[in-house]
Design a protein around this nucleic acid. Structure first.
Lengths: 211, 211
DNA sequence: TAGATTGTTAATCGATTAACAATC
DNA sequence: TAGATTGTTAATCGATTAACAATC
């Protein structure tokens, strides 16, 4: 039974995104039902955690028969996407930005990168990987026009803070930041930083700790 | 006082990496000493957490005078890098791989991407962004030759598991994985996955929850 | 029915924060 | 000295896991 609207933890949201990905694979394989212990094995979790994570998505689990794959995918989509295709902006059309564009384009049905932005006149005005690139100055205008709520920030570290400030000023609701900079703000924007250097230094540290 | 060898949590290691980055900036700015509350503000943490994180790096903090910036950088380097330049392999010379190569090359003094690997004959044998690209078949050989302990995995999702298995077979100690796949293993390799899609879907979800 | 799995509460575990004596 | 900050232990908080009645 779903509670009216318990807030769901960030970790649970992350895992739901991953469960969905695996569920779609199972769907392709023609699997109709799945048990919590099967799903948990795919992500090295515990069955209890899977069941707990699935509580807020609306209990369509069935004792002894597990979860219906199709239904579960649908319910997770309702929760994560609101059945709404989200328009995304990508700020920074350098190497990393273009790689991300390639990586995130294609068969995604819940979001779509609709516009790029860069401050390099060599880049804006052009179409890059099938997407139009605008000048940073047009950020506010285009974000409104395309109804963009989430931005991916792939600019060099030095430019990250200033660009983030502009973004936040436009009323954007979430930022996925790839610059190695912590972004401080007093607003309620949700900011998620994927810090590549941090992750690599962590891996290097633990490479030495194992055996 | 440093304890013989308490194991340090992953979260603390991550934060130490970030502290170091900011400390280097402070160093450039000519700042000689720093308080825990200053450092904490830069990462939106608490002073108590900073002090706690710094305990295992060897207490060079001084009551009322804070920490010496230069010394702290050195001590963190001792802990994270062992004062040893680490040789890294990059597997996958596609868009993402090449972007990562550009991103991680340059003025890094604690690690160095020394070899690329790809299974595309168009790519291996060539020099890409200044680094030689080898065929995946040469993985074991070259990893031994270059004394590589950590690998960055930037291959397409479909290839991730098989490639990871080969990697683990070579005796690599840590993997930084960019493929949207959970990698299961019975070995002790340290595996860190940076899941871009997961992070984006999370940002999209919370873009709707704010206000 | 018997066996297995779910949803959910209680117990456990780990990480963060508060507090404070020691120190500069 | 008085004020401020550190190192570290104790208290709190949140997330994970265990347990089990309800159910298929």
């Amino acid at each position: 039974m779903t509670r009216p609207q318990q807030t769901i933890s960030e970790k649970t949201i992350e895992r739901l995104s991953v469960y969905r990905r695996y569920l779609k694979e199972l769907q392709k394989q023609g699997k109709e039902r799945v048990y919590s212990h099967e799903l948990s094995k795919l992500v090295s979790g515990t069955p209890a955690q899977v069941r707990r994570d699935l509580m807020p998505v609306g209990g369509n689990g069935c004792s002894s028969k597990g979860y219906e794959v199709n239904l579960l995918i649908e319910e997770i989509a309702k929760l994560l996407d609101c059945n709404d295709k989200q328009n995304i902006a990508l700020i920074g059309a350098g190497n990393l930005g273009r790689a991300l564009l390639g990586y995130l384009s294609g068969s995604r049905d819940n979001y779509d990168i609709v516009a790029l932005f860069d401050n390099d006149p060599e880049k804006y005005g052009r179409v890059i990987c099938g997407k139009r690139c605008y000048c940073i100055d047009q950020l506010a205008e285009k974000i409104k026009e395309y109804k963009i709520t989430t931005a991916i920030l792939a600019v060099p570290g030095e430019a990250a803070e200033a660009t983030a400030e502009i973004l936040i000023g436009t009323g954007i609701k979430a930022i996925l930041n790839f610059a190695p900079k912590h972004i401080t703000t007093s607003s309620t924007v949700f900011i998620e930083t994927l810090d590549i250097t941090k992750a690599l230094e962590k891996a290097i540290y633990f490479s030495r700790k194992n055996t």
